[in-house]
Nucleic acid binder design. Structure first.
Length: 427
DNA sequence: TCTGGGGTCCTAGGACCC
DNA sequence: TCTGGGGTCCTAGGACCC
């Protein structure tokens, strides 16, 4: 199962706490505008498209997460809901403040998302409930943000404990332990961390409806029917920790994309957009000290508009050498876009994905001309790729490339990031 | 008319190699 | 008529998360 983190390996019980900010984006807006206390708030996605955060008051109005805003605009007006466009800089800043307080209070921490962190409370000298109550108080007084804290033996249970803390307690802290574990009866499977719509439906088909029922299911049988992920989940529900704290790793891919506020038909506007996204992506790349080995650019029409002719396509290009050079990345991204562009469509979204990121310690001059007889084959391969995809975008080829592979495989393969020095410059 | 953006992990099955 | 076997690598696609 790979339950290899220290406590599990030693067979020692762990205590996890999940700290989660309540209605994070909505709460951030409220911090800077206290007159919103007790009033309904929603925060909208890019272009004010969807509802991505709701205060409790807004939830009570029945506004669902992810709902298209235009469908709820009337209801919002009617109930004087305070509507905000998203302000990610603000939320990011508030997040860092919360995480700094948490780290200061307890260094054994995994920052799981913008508004959540796991603490591994093993060895906490205090009673962990009291510790959590004090922590919650401190975060509230220092940042103004309300948080809930769930405590349990595993991460999965801590998630459930957090759900209970948020919805069923006054204190905002809940310790799920042996004495109250029967509460799992009241938790439907779709509330479990890792169970989405599809898995929930399949579990229900097997007459498994609650967390308790899943916990009592046969691990071997369900592993066969689902996967190892499901098996771990069951053990986690039983209090056997299979998921430890994870340290911060650099991203394995970086995406920058946006849907446009209006439909776009001209190539020049698209180029402008992709240049911008490419710049954002390469900045992110440099900030984590990585180089990208290649990129994907994609382009699509609005698939909600059934009346429009649809088109979506993407193109992958490996770089001759891993790079974080903004100008170069923009240049390639534009070339890709030109290749994707077809006249006559109304475009809705474009974006760029940087792939197979490697640490920027790799020497970029480690390029060799092939010495072997494979050189001719390589040249032919590259020529055929260039012919197919356009001479300006693909100049290089890696050792071992099979000419029958699609170009995507050339750099999506982790092999070419771990064996980077073997990549050969052929032109 | 208007419908977000950014991530990760797992598996089946094909391709390939010896 | 008979047509190896074991292993690795790789991809597409599915599923999930916030």
């Amino acid at each position: 199962l790979g339950c290899s983190h220290a406590s599990a390996a030693r067979g020692v019980m762990s205590i996890f706490a999940l700290v989660d900010c309540n209605n994070f984006y909505a709460s951030c807006e409220r911090v800077f505008n206290p007159r919103l206390e007790g009033k309904p708030i929603v925060v909208l996605s890019n272009n004010d498209g969807c509802v991505i955060a709701r205060s409790n008051e807004a939830k009570k109005l029945g506004i669902p997460m992810g709902a298209p805003f235009f469908q709820w605009e009337k209801v919002c007006k009617q109930h004087k809901v305070n509507v905000f466009s998203s302000n990610y800089e603000l939320y990011g800043d508030m997040s860092s403040r919360v995480m700094a307080l948490l780290t200061e209070a307890w260094p054994d921490i995994e920052i799981y998302s913008i508004d959540e962190a796991f603490l591994l409370l093993d060895g906490c000298p205090e009673n962990c409930v009291e510790f959590s109550l004090a922590l919650r108080q401190k975060i509230k007084s220092c940042t103004g943000l309300p948080v809930s804290i769930g405590i349990a033996k595993t991460k999965t249970l801590a998630k459930i404990a957090n759900f209970i803390a948020k919805n069923q307690t006054e204190s905002g802290v809940f310790h799920l332990n042996d004495s109250n574990i029967s509460i799992l009866k009241t938790i439907p499977v779709e509330k479990i961390w890792g169970v989405g719509r599809r898995l929930a439906a399949r579990l229900n088909d097997l007459k498994i409806f609650t967390a308790e029922e899943l916990k009592n299911s046969d691990t071997k049988k369900l592993r066969k029917q689902f996967s190892v992920v499901m098996e771990k989940m069951i053990y986690e529900l039983r209090g056997v920790s299979c998921l430890g704290l994870e340290s911060v790793q650099p991203r394995k891919q970086i995406i920058s994309s946006r849907s446009f506020g209006k439909l776009i038909t001209s190539l020049s506007e698209l180029e402008e957009a992709i240049s911008h996204y490419a710049a954002i992506a390469s900045e992110k790349l440099r900030s984590q000290h990585s180089l990208a080995s290649g990129l994907v650019v994609f382009l699509q029409t609005n698939f909600f508009r059934k009346q429009d002719v649809q088109y979506q396509n993407s193109v992958c290009v490996p770089f001759p050498a891993a790079t974080a050079d903004t100008a170069y990345i923009i240049h390639i991204a534009k070339k890709c876009l030109q290749r994707l562009y077809r006249k006559g469509f109304r475009y809705h979204k474009t974006g760029i994905m940087l792939l197979n990121l490697i640490p920027d310690t790799v020497k970029q001059n480690d390029w060799l001309l092939p010495q072997s007889s494979a050189r001719d084959t390589l040249m032919k391969t590259v020529d055929s790729i260039n012919q197919e995809y356009g001479r300006n975008t693909v100049f290089y080829c890696a050792e071992g490339i099979n000419p029958t592979w699609k170009i995507k495989s050339v750099f999506r393969s982790p092999r070419y990031t771990t064996r980077w020095n073997e990549i050969l410059k052929v032109r």
